[in-house]
Computed example of a mutant assay.
Amino acid sequence: MNIKTIIAKRAAQEFKDCMVVNLGFGIPVMAANYIQEGVDVILQSENGVLSFGPNANLGEEDPTLCNAAGVPITSLPGCCIVDIDTSFLIIRGGHVDMTILGALEVDQEGNIANWAIPYADGRYGPGVGGAMDLLTGAKKVVVTTTHTTKEGKSKILKKCTMPLSAKGAVDLIITELAVMEVTTKGLVLKETAPGVTVKEVIQKTDADLIIPNEVCEMKVS
């Protein structure tokens, strides 16, 4: 099982009945493929889709129906397409119970940086998109990200160094190594992935972690 699948499967466990959930591009949209049996959620995409299902199989795509990442998706009974204004009214109006987003950096205070900065003269990476709206409009914010960069540097920091998308917005962080909860006392280590020790998580995390007496094992089967 690859890293992204581990994270997406664990993120899907946060879905609860009757939730309206927004999924960002990257690992978050993968979570739609792992919704647990018997859990009924309404998935919302900022491009104006409400009540969609897993990704479409090759050859069964509807070119007019895609998620925030532009990937073809399936529709569920009651699925509707709305304009972008209505989609953001849903988000800004506080009607999204949870959003799952990726991040470039996230810190122990719940601050998040998930949009790119200039990388050359007049050249920029991806824009902020709807992240700021989602981070302030959703009732719960879950971040899914690899624990470290390709260079092995921690993405879970004491303090973000990149321009922030939002301050103090993150509630839960899920990586391939651990699940961490942002609390008023600090960042609490809740779960470790199978085969991963608490010591390893601490070594690969720049942020200060609160270690409870019992740390559960992440379920990703």
Rank of each mutant, 00 (worst) to 15 (best):
A69C: 13
L164F: 13
V142C: 04
T146V: 00
P72I: 11
I81H: 15
L43E: 15
G78F: 14
P63G: 01
M162C: 10
T175I: 13
I90S: 14
G93N: 15
I84P: 12
L50Q: 13
I100N: 00
E105N: 09
V96Y: 08
D171C: 02
G125E: 03
K139D: 10
L101G: 04
A113G: 04
V142A: 09
G127Y: 02
Q108V: 08
R123H: 06
W115G: 13
A68D: 09
D97A: 00
A166Y: 08
I112G: 04
T161K: 02
S165V: 05
D121E: 10
D85G: 01
T161V: 11
S45M: 14
K167W: 09
T99G: 05
I173Y: 01
H147R: 03
E61M: 05
C80V: 12
V128H: 06
C66L: 06
F88A: 03
V96G: 07
T149V: 12
G168V: 07
K139P: 04
L58I: 12
L50W: 15
N114C: 10
D133P: 01
L172N: 01
P63K: 04
N57M: 13
D121N: 09
N57S: 15
S87F: 12
F88E: 09
D85I: 02
N67P: 07
S87V: 11
A120G: 12
G48P: 13
T144K: 05
C80H: 14
G129C: 15
E151A: 11
K150A: 05
G122D: 02
T145H: 05
I100A: 02
P163A: 06
V82M: 09
K158W: 02
G125V: 04
Y119K: 08
T64Y: 12
A113Q: 05
I73F: 00
K155Y: 03
D133I: 00
T161H: 12
V170P: 14
F52C: 15
E60A: 14
T144Q: 01
G122K: 08
G53E: 04
K150Y: 00
L104V: 11
N111Q: 08
I112L: 00
N55E: 08
C66Y: 15
K139S: 10
V141S: 11
T144H: 09
L58D: 11
L43N: 13
S165G: 13
T136Q: 01
Q44K: 11
I174A: 04
H95G: 12
I117N: 14
G59D: 13
D121L: 05
M162K: 15
N111D: 13
P126T: 03
G152T: 14
I42H: 15
T161A: 12
D97S: 06
L43V: 14
L134G: 03
C160W: 02
C79M: 15
L101K: 01
I90G: 08
G122F: 12
A69Q: 11
P77W: 02
S45C: 13
A69E: 06
A131F: 01
L101F: 03
K140C: 01
L65I: 09
F88P: 06
M132R: 11
I42Y: 05
A113P: 07
G102Q: 09
L65P: 01
V41M: 13
S45P: 14
M98I: 00
D85P: 03
L50D: 07
G125R: 04
Q44L: 15
I90K: 06
V141G: 07
S45L: 15
S87Y: 02
M98K: 06
K155S: 07
Y124E: 03
K167I: 12
E105V: 09
K155P: 09
E109M: 03
F88L: 05
S45A: 14
A56G: 05
